[in-house]
Design a protein around this nucleic acid. Structure first.
Lengths: 353, 353
DNA sequence: TTGTAGGCGTTATCAT
DNA sequence: ATGATAACGCCTACAA
């Protein structure tokens, strides 16, 4: 099976037909009489024929290969990356495509290299920035693509993204229902005015502030580095500067872990003294934190699947379908980190318990 | 740049030479006079020529595409998966190859499908079992491959794997140096007699027992499900059944997180009452646990890089190089979870502190 | 050193 | 309904 290539010619000869006919039955591209079809299929089976995708690609000018473009090192833990890759590859396979992965910094030169080689028909782009140069490049070079995530200007683009608005709204609604009025967002936004950066933190923060207001909550947000240590330190700042806060939403797994540890070190209990929720992560990660955090889990499989199929839509219809813009909310998975507030406990950490 | 294919013919015409000459300068396959080379290169640059990898593959019978084969859902968190994929893809790219990913259950039919299509020249196989049917299939079908991990019988195989012996030896040596004599391994081995299963837990356990003996330690091991809850429960069992144990090595991140939480719930402190080490995981994951665990970190990048280059070696030399069998030890990264033992504390959890 | 020409295995057009 | 037969874009003996 390594290099003993059985070709269409062999099959044709064996079935006593022409290669064209064999091609017709394989692709269903032309009607073939039932009888010859059977002969051809028998011959294929007998000879162990496998169609050569390279030759097919060359002749048909369709490689049926798509690329998954992701920048390296954007996120630290990436608990959902594995399932994302898996579902994307599986979806591609299910639709007759092959998925190649390319980690890249995304320079124009690199992208040109990748798309110019003729292997890849289109790209699924991950880790999208609010203003993303890769999108500009692909667009102006006529390379088909779909985003997992989205830029600020999404007109005419195919994408799937997390529905941050719905996710944050659900989180805040739950907190509100529990009686929380003072909530804080701990995220990784370093410069709130950099509107061109990595989009998710920006969208979450915006949604947090807007929805918080709508629900009549007092909101505050602060950004920190994406490390457990920073989360630990944030707990101290919380107690010092936001003593009235009774619930905290964290938009990063390392921050969340460190934050909970920091609270513990301060003698504050979760969820009795402070409720803590983890946004945009995974159930497994949430289960690693003590107490197990309530989490709004990334719909990783869904994103992978939909990103790929959106791209294939573009490829096969030649244009972006109106339905090619989808948002999927994170799904809440209960943990043990949310409870009704006991106002003021934080300001007297020594006395609680 | 999308479909305006500039071909070698165009370049040849522009440079006033034949297509063969153009091919020669591109591939260096034949000597070309300095002068014509310059003309050709100028023409290529001017025309914006990019060689078509599909046509090249068809004509040369070398696609320069390799596959990364991994079964779905084997491991829960896979903190190292991302960097692994990244380094594998980067290495492939650096050597002029493209990496396609295929999640698969690994049935013979699926593998035949994958390797028979003519796209993929060889495979890097991950998540290898001690006795792995995929290896048998690939071997008997003459498909070039390299393992990340290894089977029991590795004769004639190209592989990179974690050096579990060295890793465990280092861990136990450190514990021994701290004064620990009673150590326990908490892992995911469910059936110690199933020697054909997922290899790493089996190898670690074997190394643990052997090296422990050599160091004159009393060792015990028990397996649990790969969840934080199981880890939590394990802490209870530890106290009940292994009161003399002063140090625990955990070979799973979820188990480790739950285990530490379980200890805390029992009033046992890490590392004062019990030292805890995490084997075969990542620094980021270790940093999520409170206290931050000492970890023996998977050399994920190294494995990805070496796995790919081992495969490419096989592809380009036509045989497995003698140097194609490599073991890489996990590297210890200090945390705050290892200390000298205070024997017996565990048996009086209520009294400690 | 350079050119000619026959594939590589399919697809797809144009006849029949 | 089937069959010849050019492409597809590049590689590579074989010639010159």
């Amino acid at each position: 099976m390594a290099n003993n290539a059985v070709t269409m010619r062999d099959v044709a000869r064996l079935a006593g037909v022409s290669v064209a006919t064999v091609s017709f039955v394989i692709n269903g591209s032309k009607p073939v009489s039932e009888e010859t079809r059977q002969r051809v299929e028998a011959a294929m089976a007998q000879a162990g024929y496998r169609r050569n995708v390279i030759a097919r690609a060359l002749a048909s000018r369709r490689t049926r290969v798509i690329g998954l473009l992701y920048p390296t090192g954007e996120r630290a833990v990436q608990g959902s990356a594995f399932q994302f890759f898996t579902s994307a590859a599986a979806q591609a396979q299910a639709q007759g495509y092959t998925l190649v992965v390319s980690p890249t910094v995304g320079s124009d030169a690199e992208l040109g290299e990748l798309t110019g080689a003729g292997l890849i028909e289109g790209l699924v782009v991950m880790e999208v920035w609010a203003q993303d140069p890769r999108v500009d490049f692909l667009r102006s070079n006529g390379v088909p693509f779909a985003l997992v995530g989205r830029t600020d200007d999404v007109s005419g683009l195919a994408y799937v993204d997390i529905d941050f608005d719905a996710t944050v709204a659900d989180a805040l609604a739950r907190l509100s229902a529990l009686g929380h009025r003072d909530v804080l967002l701990l995220d990784t936004v370093t410069d709130p005015d950099d509107h061109g950066g990595y989009a998710p933190p920006l969208r979450v923060r915006a949604a947090f502030e807007r929805t918080g207001q709508e629900l009549g909550m007092r909101t505050a947000a602060f950004g920190a580095a994406r490390t457990a240590d920073a989360g630990f330190a944030a707990a101290g700042r919380l107690v010092a500067q936001h003593g009235a806060v009774t619930a905290v939403l964290v938009h990063d797994e390392l921050l969340a872990a460190g934050f909970v540890a920091g609270l513990r070190a301060l003698g504050a209990h979760v969820p009795e003294d402070v409720s803590v929720g983890l946004i945009d992560s995974t159930v497994e990660i949430a289960s690693m934190i003590d107490p197990r955090l309530d989490v709004w889990a990334v719909p990783g499989e869904e994103l992978g699947r939909q990103g790929v199929s959106a791209l294939i839509d573009v490829l096969e219809r030649g244009s972006v379908a109106p339905s090619a813009q989808n948002l999927v909310a994170c799904r809440h998975v209960a943990g043990a980190s949310l409870a009704a507030p006991r106002a003021g406990m934080l300001s007297r950490p020594g006395e609680s318990h």
